[in-house]
Simulated assay, not measured.
Amino acid sequence: MPSLTLLSAALLTSGGLAHAYTQVNIATPFMTKNIDPIVFPGQHNKSHLHSFYGSDAVTIDTKTSAELQSGCTAAENPNDLSVYWTPTVLYQKGSTWEPVPVSRFSAYYSLGDTKAEVPIPQNLQMVAGNAQAQTADTMVAEAHSEWFCEGSDGGPLDKNGFPSKACTTHLQQLLYFPNCVDTTTLKTAYKAGRPGAYKACPAGTKAMPQLRFSIRYDVRKALPGGWSGTAPLQLACGPAHCSHGDFINGWTADAALNMVAATAEKNKFASVDGKLGKNGVRPTCKAADADPKRGTGNYAESVKAMSKREVVAVGWASRARLVRAL
């Protein structure tokens, strides 16, 4: 599959591919923790480590938009109380693995997609990618997961899917979520085609604004000496191939409806405002772990806890709603 790096850059230009979009920025994760309310609902110490962004009302029991809307959001849009999470990116520090600092998390909606028909439904849960993928050929192609050095040549990818040469700026990750939904069952799917050239949704589903993660990691701070060859990096789930993202919708209903209109015109950023304020307003509260006494943010402790799992989990991948996960 050809790289989407150049395509992603093209979508930001006025050259004709880009459609209207909105963007929400979040400075850093508000917590790192070994929980996953979609794959392991109600269960602690079953998941690998994740970095969480957005509403701090999330716990292992979170299921609804209303629950998230009762929290404090770290997003620079007061109407976005969604929660977003990804496997924590780690760098090798001596004999331990530590989280790589995040420079910025951005959630783009409908960048390069066609006009949406319906808003993202309340209570929608989605996963993009495959947490079990250990090789490139087992990744979910529709998620278009990609790792590259922002604005510089990171060389060919190493055996684990990371750039083989140190990044002079940030290590950047892109990940695309399903853009079709059955509004009754909340089952999601991808349109035929690819970013910038999407076609129709599967029968029984309608187009909604497409979510795309764009995350910049400060590898210069974590690894000031750089690297050449195999990058001293891994995800909490393994190599870059297991990259995935999770999302539970927490947008207020009025802002979610406004987002549909934001996808109508080509080549234009559209601010999505709502009853709680305007896009771009920085948080006035401090997001924090809602359940600090349970779970861990330490990678070694999370690995130890996972080794005690007694059951095989039923998880999600973006290719299909339910898959068997190890």
Rank of each mutant, 00 (worst) to 15 (best):
A136D: 09
K63N: 12
T296D: 04
E98M: 10
T263G: 10
T205Y: 04
L11F: 04
G204R: 05
S103Q: 14
L171M: 15
N267Y: 03
K199M: 08
P37V: 11
D137S: 14
L326R: 13
L157C: 02
L7I: 14
V140G: 02
Y190M: 04
Y84R: 08
Y21M: 08
G229T: 11
K93G: 07
A20C: 14
A320S: 14
G54S: 02
S302K: 08
P101E: 07
L175I: 07
C242Y: 01
T32R: 13
R321C: 06
V118I: 10
A305P: 02
A136P: 00
V127W: 00
V311C: 09
G15I: 05
A305H: 11
S145N: 13
K308Q: 14
R319P: 00
T168V: 07
P2D: 07
T230Y: 01
F30A: 09
E265S: 13
A325R: 08
A288G: 00
Y190W: 01
S228P: 00
R194C: 01
E142C: 01
L186C: 06
R309Q: 13
L235I: 05
E142I: 00
P78V: 08
S145Y: 01
L257M: 12
P283W: 07
S106W: 06
K278E: 03
T185L: 10
R104S: 10
Y176F: 15
H244W: 03
S65E: 05
F30H: 08
V39M: 04
Q43F: 13
G112P: 10
T13V: 06
K159G: 07
C72L: 07
V39E: 12
L233Q: 04
A136W: 02
T88N: 11
N123E: 05
H241M: 07
L186P: 02
F177K: 04
M208W: 06
A255N: 03
V314H: 10
E117K: 12
F40W: 14
H19K: 07
A203M: 05
N123Y: 01
K187P: 00
P202L: 11
N130V: 05
N249T: 08
L124Q: 09
